[in-house]
Design a protein around this nucleic acid. Structure first.
Length: 777
DNA sequence: ATCTCCTGTCATATA
DNA sequence: TCTATATGACAGGAG
C-alpha cells in the first residue's frame, strides 16, 4: 500500500474551508485545509488502496504534509523552520498557525491539516494530530493519541493550541513524562513506539531535526518525502496492525482522531453552542463550527448516540461508520422534504457522492489559496468546496428544488443550460463541466447559492417556478395511491376573502367540500368534448370538461398577463364560495387528473351534484361560457371588460355573462342587505325591550309618586280640618271650612279668607303668571 | 295543503 | 352614462 486516498474522492481530497468569524469585534479569517484521509478498514479498503495518490506525485506531499507525517503538523515545525511555500504548502500554514498563539489576531489565517491517518500508529502517525507533543517527546503520539483533546492524553499535543506553537521547546521537553492521569495514552505511546521501532523509523529524530533551525528546511523536506515513501512502502500487515491498534483505542474511548483545539478555542468563544442547538433540533442549520466541533469531539460512544443527541462528541471514524451505516440517502430525504435539517452525514454523503461522480473542480472559494496549496489544488484530484458557505446554509425544499438541477422540476432545458446553476466560480475553469458539476447530490447546486440565485431570478423565473412547483406537487400527489384531492386542495386553501357570508347556507354539507376544493373552481361540468379556444382560457371555465386542465392552466397562465394570471393565483389563495359547491370537487378532479378509482367517485358525485347546479351555471354551461361564475362575478370591471374584449364571444354569451355578473353581485348585495336588515331588526327589538323596561320603571315610579301625593293630600286635609275645628269667629261660632279658607302671607301670618276671594285672587295670580311667562317667551 | 323561512331575482333608487 | 350598491317586492324551494 502506497497511499491511502481520501475517502471522498478518487484523487484525494483537500477540503478547503474558509471561515470568516467575527468574534468580539475582531475579524478572524480561517482557512482550513482539511485532509481527511480516512481508514475505513473494510468499506473503502479496495478503493483506498488504489488511489490516484499512488500515481500523482503532487498529491503525496499534501497528503502527508509534514515530515512528521500524520497528525496536526503545526507542532512539527520548529520556529526557525522556514519551509518553502511553493515546495511545502504546509510551511506557510505553520507560520500562520504560530501566529495563532495570540488569540484572536485580526485577519489571522490559520491553516491546519486534519489528518486522520489510516496508519495511526505508524511512523508518520507518530506525530498525531493532537499527539504532536507526544510525538516530539516520545515519538508515540499517533493520530489518535489525545483522547480528551488536551491535557490528559497528550500533554503537549492536546494543550491549548494557542500556547503550543509558542513554546515548541517545551513541547519537546515536557511531555517526555506522561502524566499519571493518562495511562492509556502512555500505553498507546508505548504501543506506537513499538510499532515505530518495528518500522525502523524515528519520527522524533526527524522532528528534532526539523525544529533545530530553518537552515535545515531542505533537509526536512527531503526527510518528509522519505517518510512518505516509507509509508508508501510500508507493508500491508503493518498498516493493518496499526489500524487495529487504533481501533482498539477507539473502542477504549481513549483515542481521539482529531484535535482542533486551536480552532475550537477560538470557536468556543461563541457564547452559544450552535452544535447543541443543532443536536437538539432547535437549529436546523449546521454551521462550520458545528462541523469542527463535531470533528474534534472525542467520542467514546457510537455514532448512534450522537445521532440520538445523547452525545455530542463524535470522532471522524465514528463519522465514517455513521456514513457507512446510513442506508438512506439523506440528500434524498432533503429533496423529498422529509428532512429539513442538513446534518453532518448529509454533508459527508454529499462529499462522497462528489467523489463517486468524479466531479472535478468544484471550486467555490473566492480567496486565493496559498501557492503550495494551489499547486496541489490544481491537480484534478482536489475539490475546493467553500464549506463555510455551504454548511451554514439552511436547506429547505424550496432551495433544493430551485437549485438542484437534477430535480424533477420541469424547467426549460434551454434555460437550465443557459443559466447553469453555478453559484461558485470554479478555480479551474477547465475542470468545470456544467453537467458534471450538477450531479444528483450536487453540493454546488444544493447548498450555498440560494441568495445569489434568488437575486438573479426574474419575476418570470419565479412565476415559472411557482407553476412548476405546483405541477410538481400535483405529480407527487398523484403518485400516491391514496391520493385525496381534498388534501391537495388544502395546500392552497386560504380564508375566504369575500364578504364572509355564507352564500348558500342551504347546502352547508356541500359547502365544506366547496370551500376545501376550490383550487380550480368553476369547472362545472359536463364531460362533453366541447372545447373551443376560449375554453382554454382558464381551468375554471364553466362549460365543458377538460381532460387535462393542468396543461391548460399552465399555458393559459403563461399567456394571459392580465387578470387571468392574477386570478389564477387568486384561485390558489381564495376560497370561492359562490355557488360552486358542485363545481369545486370536479375542478379539483380536473386539476389533478383523477385516477381510475377516483373517477367512479367523481362521476357518482357529479351525478349527485349536477342537480344542484344553479340556473346561471346551467346557462353558462349551455352557452359554453369559458369563465367560471366566480370569475365573472368577482373580477374587477376593467378586467371583466378586457376579458370580454379579449375573447371571441357571441352576443348571447356576453349578455349572459353580464347577467350572471349582475345577478351575482345583486345576490351578494341582497344577502348583505338582509343581513343589515336583520341586524337592524335585532337592534330595534333590543331597543323595544329596553324601552319597555324603562316604561315599566317609569310606571312604577309614577305610581309611587302618586301614592305619596295622596298621602300628602290626606295629611293636608286632616290638618285643615283640625285647624278649622279650633277656629272661632268674633261671635264665638265655629268657622265653616267650606266657606272660608286659610291664606298664608309671605310674612308668615295666616289669614282666614272667604273662599270666593281666594278663588278670584287665585285666578288673578294665575293670569299674572301666565302673562309673565308669555312675556318671557 | 298550508305556512314559514330562506334564497335568488328583478326593479328601482341612490351614490 | 355606467357601475356598484342598497332595498323592496316577488317567486320558488325546502322543511
Amino acid at each position: 500500500m502506497k497511499y491511502l486516498k481520501p475517502w471522498w474522492s478518487e484523487g484525494g481530497g483537500l477540503l478547503h474551508l474558509t471561515i470568516l468569524l467575527s468574534l468580539a469585534g475582531l475579524h478572524l479569517d480561517l482557512d482550513l485545509d482539511l485532509y481527511l484521509v480516512l481508514p475505513p478498514p473494510t468499506l473503502f479498503r479496495d478503493e483506498l488502496l488504489l488511489g490516484d495518490c499512488q500515481t500523482n506525485p503532487a498529491y503525496a506531499p499534501s497528503l502527508f504534509p509534514a515530515a512528521g507525517g500524520w497528525g496536526r503538523t503545526d507542532h512539527l515545525h520548529p520556529k526557525g523552520r522556514e519551509p518553502d511555500p511553493a515546495a511545502e504548502p504546509e510551511g506557510q500554514l505553520f507560520r500562520e498557525v504560530r501566529t495563532l498563539g495570540v488569540p484572536f489576531i485580526p485577519r489571522t489565517r490559520v491553516d491546519a491539516w486534519l489528518v486522520h491517518s489510516v496508519a495511526a500508529g505508524d511512523a508518520d502517525g507518530a506525530h498525531g494530530l493532537l499527539g504532536a507533543a507526544a510525538a516530539s517527546a516520545s515519538s508515540a503520539g499517533g493520530v489518535g493519541t489525545s483522547a480528551d483533546s488536551g491535557s490528559q492524553a497528550a500533554p503537549g499535543g492536546g494543550e491549548d493550541p494557542r500556547a503550543a506553537p509558542s513554546s515548541p521547546l517545551e513541547e519537546e521537553e515536557a511531555p517526555t513524562e506522561p502524566t499519571a492521569q493518562v495511562p492509556d495514552a502512555r500505553g498507546r505511546a508505548s504501543e506506537d513506539n513499538e510499532v515505530l521501532r518495528a518500522m525502523g523509523h524515528s519520527s522524533q529524530q526527524e522532528e528534532n531535526e526539523q525544529r533545530v533551525s530553518s537552515a535545515q528546511k531542505e533537509k526536512s523536506l527531503h526527510q518528509k518525502n522519505e517518510d512518505e515513501n516509507k509509508i508508501a512502502d510500508k507493508p500491508e500487515w503493518e498498516a493493518e496492525k496499526t489500524t487495529e491498534s487504533r481501533e482498539e483505542r477507539h473502542l477504549n474511548g481513549t483515542d481521539t482522531s482529531f484535535s482542533l483545539e486551536d480552532l475550537l478555542q477560538l470557536l468556543s468563544s461563541q457564547s452559544e453552542n450552535s452544535l447543541e442547538r443543532y443536536l437538539y433540533g432547535t437549529d436546523t442549520s449546521f454551521s462550520l463550527e458545528d462541523l469542527l466541533q463535531l470533528l474534534s469531539s472525542q467520542s467514546k460512544n457510537l455514532p448512534e448516540t450522537h445521532l440520538n443527541g445523547t452525545d455530542t462528541s463524535l470522532s471522524l471514524e465514528d463519522l465514517l461508520q455513521l456514513l457507512s451505516s446510513q442506508p438512506e440517502n439523506s440528500l434524498e430525504r432533503h429533496l423529498n422534504g422529509t428532512d429539513t435539517s442538513f446534518s453532518l452525514e448529509d454533508l459527508l454523503q454529499l462529499l462522497s457522492s462528489q467523489s463517486e461522480n468524479s466531479l472535478e473542480g468544484i471550486s467555490l472559494g473566492d480567496s486565493p489559496l496559498p501557492g503550495g496549496i494551489n499547486d496541489v489544488m490544481n491537480s484534478s484530484a482536489h475539490y475546493h468546496v467553500n464549506i463555510s458557505q455551504a454548511i451554514s446554509h439552511d436547506v429547505n425544499l424550496h432551495e433544493a428544488m430551485l437549485l438542484c438541477p437534477n430535480n424533477t422540476f420541469r424547467r426549460d432545458p434551454v434555460e437550465r443550460t443557459s443559466q447553469p446553476r453555478e453559484p461558485f466560480l470554479p478555480l479551474n475553469s477547465h475542470t468545470i463541466n456544467p453537467e458534471q458539476t450538477l450531479p444528483r447530490a450536487n453540493l454546488t447546486g444544493f447548498l450555498p447559492p440560494v441568495d445569489h440565485q434568488l437575486r438573479n431570478l426574474t419575476s418570470q423565473d419565479l412565476y415559472d417556478l411557482n407553476i412548476n412547483m405546483f405541477d410538481e406537487i400535483n405529480s407527487v400527489s398523484l403518485a400516491t395511491e391514496s391520493f385525496d384531492p381534498l388534501e391537495v386542495s388544502h395546500l392552497f386553501e386560504q380564508p375566504d376573502s369575500d364578504s364572509g357570508l355564507s352564500l348558500n347556507s342551504s347546502h352547508n354539507s356541500i359547502s365544506v367540500i366547496k370551500s376545501n376544493s376550490s383550487v380550480c373552481e368553476g369547472a362545472i361540468g359536463s364531460s362533453s368534448d366541447l372545447e373551443s379556444p376560449s375554453h382554454c382560457a382558464l381551468e375554471g371555465a364553466v362549460g365543458g370538461y377538460y381532460p387535462e386542465p393542468r396543461k391548460i392552466c399552465q399555458v393559459d397562465l403563461r399567456s394571459d398577463s392580465g387578470f387571468h394570471r392574477d386570478l389564477a393565483f387568486q384561485h390558489v389563495l381564495h376560497d370561492h364560495t359562490y355557488h360552486l359547491q358542485p363545481s369545486a370537487p370536479e375542478s379539483t378532479s380536473e386539476s389533478f387528473s383523477w385516477t381510475g378509482k377516483s373517477h367512479k367517485i367523481r362521476s357518482r358525485y357529479l351525478d349527485d351534484t349536477d342537480r344542484h347546479l344553479s340556473r346561471d351555471e346551467r346557462r353558462a354551461e349551455a352557452l359554453h361560457i369559458p369563465f367560471s361564475i366566480d370569475e365573472i362575478v368577482h373580477m374587477p370591471v376593467d378586467s371583466f371588460n378586457s376579458m370580454l374584449s379579449r375573447h371571441y364571444l357571441t352576443d348571447l354569451q356576453v349578455s349572459l355573462i353580464r347577467d350572471i355578473r349582475r345577478r351575482g353581485k345583486n345576490k351578494v348585495a341582497a344577502q348583505n342587505c338582509r343581513k343589515r336588515k336583520l341586524d337592524i331588526i335585532l337592534n330595534l327589538e333590543d331597543d323595544v325591550c329596553n324601552l319597555k323596561a324603562k316604561k315599566e320603571t317609569l310606571k312604577s315610579e309614577r305610581a309611587q309618586c302618586k301614592r305619596a301625593i295622596n298621602i300628602m293630600k290626606q295629611k293636608l286635609h286632616d290638618l285643615y280640618r283640625d285647624i278649622f275645628s279650633r277656629l272661632r269667629d268674633d261671635e264665638g261660632r265655629p268657622v265653616n271650612p267650606n266657606e272660608y279658607a286659610l291664606q298664608f302671607s309671605h310674612d308668615g301670618s295666616v289669614w282666614i279668607i272667604p273662599k270666593e276671594l281666594v278663588t278670584s285672587r287665585h285666578k288673578k295670580e294665575t293670569q299674572k303668571g301666565k302673562r309673565k311667562s308669555e312675556r318671557r317667551n
